[in-house]
Amino acid sequence: MGLTIADLKKGERGVIIDSSSKDIPLKLLEMGCLPGNEVKLLQLAPFSDPLYLNVNDSFLAIRKDTAALILIDRIDG
């Protein structure tokens, strides 16, 4: 399996390439976790879970196991 949101480090960004896993809640897709959208990891709670993200101009927190289902390409710099 490729790179996912769960692999991002604090402050890093990526572009979503696939979020079609059936275990991803629809709500997350509706908030903008869709292919092509940029995602930035803003903050990690203690024990690196949950993750505080900015996706598609939405600010949201999701758990690590959900984040690990969303495939991304890392954006460098």
Binding site: P25, M31, F59, L60, A61, T66
Partner: peptide, 12 residues
């Protein structure tokens, strides 16, 4: 339960 379902919006 199989799914862990947790999405929280972080409002301004």
């Amino acid at each position: 339960e199989r799914k862990s379902f947790f999405v929280v919006e972080m409002p301004n």
